[in-house]
């Protein structure tokens, strides 16, 4: 399963619920969801606590737009729009946690 998160982790509970309920697989952070992957943020702690359960991806253009591309935490793979499409194609199912 590819879990897509587009909400900031401090504004909405979508990342929390996803981390608690989703089985192993991948998480792709897009739009305001990318803030979860920034060093020193509360989101970073949540993603670290989830350990290696998920492979974590974040959409590069959304990080750049928000001025945070230079402070992405370790263990997050950056993808562009083409990579986004590849991830969706690679996984049997995708879920957008709106």
């Amino acid at each position: 399963m590819l879990n897509i998160i587009n909400k900031s982790p401090l504004d909405r509970g979508s990342l929390d619920t996803c981390l608690q309920s989703a089985d192993a697989g991948a998480i792709l952070l897009i739009e305001d969801g990318v803030y979860a992957a920034t060093k020193g943020s509360a989101g970073e702690a949540k993603l670290k606590a989830a350990g290696g359960k998920f492979k974590i991806y974040a959409l590069g253009p959304d990080l750049e737009a928000r001025g945070i591309a230079d402070r992405v935490m370790d263990g997050v793979t950056l993808v562009d729009y083409g990579g986004f499409v590849d991830l969706v194609a690679e996984h049997k199912t995708s879920q957008s946690w709106l």
Partner: peptide, 9 residues
């Protein structure tokens, strides 16, 4: 936050 680069989006 400084450094917004919105070309990509």
């Amino acid at each position: 936050k400084k450094g917004h680069q919105t070309k990509g989006i």
